[in-house]
């Protein structure tokens, strides 16, 4: 693999790993707070899967980078500006309906992405995707089922998820952004074309929104910046909590 391609793949893997880690952490914040016990367990199960994906992806990113950074070093020793996650993932938890909308918009993307990454010409990425796709299929069924239940539920539940959909929709454009580096990865058959991904995501999302009796928001202004390290203020608070221990006690072992 050429140096440029390797660097592009490092960036791609880091973005994917960071998005999984940040969203996984957000879901873990529901532990002990979900509306019912089964849902508490479900959200934290999904969180564990996402953190598991992040571990594989960040480990691989560290290998691609070749500077000796492992998963922990990447997760715990980078500040906000070095994080490359989607802004959608860091949006803070509001009500349960908001979490379900955030999760569904992400899961619908993840299931389409990993399904295609299984055919990547990069063996390691294909292996990670084959593992992850089996799990995100569960996630998207779960968040999709809930979205239908809430959207097609009571007036209050419908209003809450409709509000969340309007708030979060501007963060979905970022999932399909691409730059020159990513273009090279597409050309090499390492990652899928974001345009193809967007078509598949849109079809999946629209079908569920229809079942949920929710209107698809118009594509207006889309928030950007995650892939350049420009984040909302929320990420700093999340990292402060997540990174507290390794920052207070660097290299601690037990």
């Amino acid at each position: 693999m050429s140096t440029d391609l390797k660097e592009a793949l490092f960036g791609y893997t880091l973005r994917l790993g960071d998005t999984s880690l940040v969203l996984g952490h957000r879901l873990s914040e529901w532990c002990g707070h979900a509306p019912e016990l089964e849902e508490d367990i479900a959200l934290t199960n999904v969180a564990l899967d996402l953190v598991g994906h992040a571990r594989m992806l960040l480990t691989y990113a560290g290998e691609l980078e070749g500077k000796g950074r492992d998963e922990d070093r990447l997760a715990y020793r980078r500040d906000v500006f070095d994080y490359r996650n989607h802004l959608l993932a860091e949006q803070p938890n509001r009500d349960f309906g908001h979490t379900i909308v955030r999760q569904f918009l992400h899961d619908a993307w993840a299931v389409e992405l990993y399904g295609r990454l299984c055919a990547s010409t990069d063996e390691t990425l294909a292996g990670i995707a084959a593992k992850a796709v089996k799990e995100v299929r569960y996630h998207v069924r779960h968040s999709g089922d809930w979205l239908v239940r809430l959207g097609d539920g009571t007036d209050i539940s419908h209003a809450k998820v409709a509000d969340a959909l309007g708030r979060l929709w501007p963060y979905t454009g970022e999932m399909f952004e691409r730059d020159e580096a990513e273009q090279a990865l597409v050309a090499a058959g390492i990652v899928p074309d974001p345009a193809e991904l967007k078509a598949a995501w849109t079809a999946r999302v629209e079908a569920v929104l229809e079942d949920a009796t929710l209107d698809r928001p118009a594509d207006g202004w889309m928030q950007k910046g995650g892939r350049r390290g420009e984040h909302s203020e929320h990420l700093g608070y999340l990292l402060a909590e997540m990174q507290f221990l390794p920052r207070a006690y660097p290299d601690a072992t037990w």
């Binding site: 089964e38 849902e39 367990i41 479900a42 199960n45 999904v46 564990l48 899967d49 569960y138 069924r141 779960h142």
Partner: peptide, 13 residues
């Protein structure tokens, strides 16, 4: 089915 996510990641309730 009560929940697709059970007491461990590999089980449903």
């Amino acid at each position: 089915q009560i929940s697709r996510f059970g007491s461990t990641a590999c089980k449903a309730l």
